[in-house]
Design a protein around this nucleic acid. Structure first.
Length: 297
DNA sequence: AATATCACCAACCGCGACAGC
DNA sequence: GGCTGTCGCGGTTGGTGATAT
């Protein structure tokens, strides 16, 4: 015995919506709200199932939907969010006002996935499929766990945004050098996301409700001439009430604040600063989103 | 000009989560 | 705690227009 259909199929219209149907749906929702989607079609005089009405409204008719092609910046954001969130299109859409999950999903499947593949990046893992070495040619990269990659990419994006904010702050202090608008937007995206529930879930929660802390304050290592410092870090203060810019980023050191957590299996990350360091090594060489620049500019 | 193939995207389907009883 | 109804999500499909052969 199969699953019962979501609604009576017989007598219901399917396929593309007509303008008259759209008008009926919009008029009804404007006057009454959608209420129960199941009963809406009957009340609105539509020969559609409630599910179809909900889809039409949320993906097409909603007044706050931003139609039109995605900008390069939006595409970049989708890629970065996908690296963090995976195929959670609704979560990605929640960070992109005016864009629907369906739209983003279509963008990913038709454009972005292929684009990443064409530049040698696995669109599911966001991992380089090969590393080319001038001496021995392409090398296979050892696989990293998805959560590790996502965490590291997420942290990388945040670090990048914070570093940029610091730079911008110092630039803004010098009124003779106005900031390019695109740079500002880019930073804002990440810091906004970082302080959203998505960022919160990565900072504070894993499935067992335990902190996965990698917070040995003395942990330090040197990689490629940079000093990596690991340890707990206070949340960046970004509210307008605190206009004090963050301290200037040290060009010789990377602060890998490892107090972040993840929502996947807690077995995948051990509670140690060594793990946090491993995250960096694991991710080094692919945490820079600049590879995308050439494809968007 | 006709046909095949590709790309895009709106819409559908099935499943899981959740709330109310 | 189990059942049922509803909703939302992610994967997939199918129609349509564009492009290639």
């Amino acid at each position: 015995m199969g699953r019962a259909p979501c609604c009576e199929k017989t007598g219901l219209k399917r396929g593309p919506w007509t303008q008259e149907e759209d008008e009926l749906l919009v008029d009804y929702i404007k006057k009454n709200g959608h209420g129960s989607w199941r009963s809406l079609p009957k009340l609105a005089g539509l020969l559609r199932c409630g599910k179809s009405c909900r889809l039409r409204w949320t993906n097409y008719l909603r007044p706050d939907i931003k139609r039109g092609p995605f900008s390069a910046e939006e595409e970049k954001l989708v890629i970065q969010l996908h690296a963090i969130l995976g195929n959670r299109w609704a979560a990605i859409a929640a960070q992109m006002p005016g864009r629907t999950d369906n739209e983003i999903k279509n963008l990913w499947n038709t454009h972005l996935r292929k684009r990443l593949l064409s530049i040698g990046i696995d669109p599911q893992t966001h991992e380089l499929t090969t590393i080319s070495s001038p001496l021995v040619g392409p090398l296979k990269r050892p696989p990293a766990s998805p959560s590790t990659r996502h965490m590291a990419q997420w942290e990388s994006a945040r670090l990048e945004a914070e570093a940029r904010l610091s730079m911008e702050s110092s630039i803004l202090l010098a009124p003779s050098t106005p900031l390019p608008p695109n740079k500002k937007t880019n930073t804002d995206y990440f810091l906004r996301i970082w302080h959203s529930e998505v960022g919160n879930s990565f900072r504070n929660v894993n499935i067992k409700g335990e902190k996965v802390a990698c917070s040995s304050p003395a942990s330090q290592a040197s990689v490629s001439g940079m000093t990596i410092e690991m340890g707990p870090k206070p949340e960046p203060e970004l509210s307008s009430s605190n206009p004090e810019p963050e301290s200037e980023p040290d060009h010789k050191s990377v602060h890998l604040y490892a107090g972040f957590t993840h929502s996947s299996s807690s077995n995948e990350v051990e509670d140690s600063s060594d793990t946090a360091l491993q995250l960096f090594f694991d991710f080094q060489g692919q945490n820079d989103m600049s590879f995308l620049e050439a494809h968007f500019n």
